[in-house]
């Protein structure tokens, strides 16, 4: 076990735990904060995997932007939910979920099944044992790839973003006008 391994292990555990809390915490604002922590953890994993640029982008986009707008969204819409549900016992909640008429055990089955299926596939696969030497200059690497090989997807993504932007504004404005 090298230092890197230990660090990875720690980061992975933090990430997974915060992800678990996103799903299970009863206060929605807490969930948003746990989500932010998850994003930071993922950024750490990126760093360990040698994807410097992506790690930076992860922090900027997810932690800086998405978590923030989610928090804004919560504050603008779910005022009642801010306080959370009456019981805080995990097992109580889990059992209440599992016995809920509509959801029952099936979502758990689906989630565990998907994860298990992926683990099975991964464990059976033939994987390269050692990683390649990490690229030293990932921003350059990605930049060149984006503007050469992937220029058309890049432009398409730009348009997707533009449309999303306009769509979001339009959706938000619509109600204002009618009022």
């Amino acid at each position: 076990m090298t230092v890197t391994d230990w660090v990875f292990l720690a980061i992975a555990l933090v990430t997974l735990f915060s992800a678990y809390r996103v799903v299970t915490t009863h206060k929605i604002m807490h969930a948003a904060l746990w989500l932010g922590l998850t994003f930071v953890g993922v950024a750490g994993i990126f760093l360990l995997l040698g994807a410097d640029f992506l790690a930076a982008a992860q922090v900027l986009v997810y932690v800086g932007a998405i978590t923030t707008i989610i928090i804004f969204g919560i504050m603008l819409s779910s005022v009642e939910d801010l306080r959370g549900e009456s019981f805080d016992n995990v097992w109580k909640r889990l059992s209440s979920r599992l016995t809920s008429s509509r959801r029952g055990i099936w979502p758990l089955l689906a989630a565990v099944g998907l994860a298990a299926a992926m683990v099975i596939v991964v464990s059976r696969g033939q994987w390269p044992a050692s990683p390649h030497a990490p690229a030293l200059d990932t921003p350059r690497l990605l930049g060149e790839a984006l503007f050469t090989r992937f220029v058309i997807p890049f432009e398409a993504a730009s348009i997707v973003l533009l449309v999303a932007l306009i769509g979001a504004i339009a959706l938000a404005l619509k109600e204002e006008r009618t009022e």
Binding site: M1, F8, A19, L108, A110, A111, L114, A115, M118
Partner: peptide
């Protein structure tokens, strides 16, 4: 236990399952 591909993929799988369940 080294920083091997299956381990990282396993982390991803667990996170995926959590997300789906949520």
């Amino acid at each position: 236990m080294t920083l091997s591909l299956p381990v990282v993929l396993g982390v991803g799988a667990i996170m995926f399952g959590l997300g789906v369940y949520g």
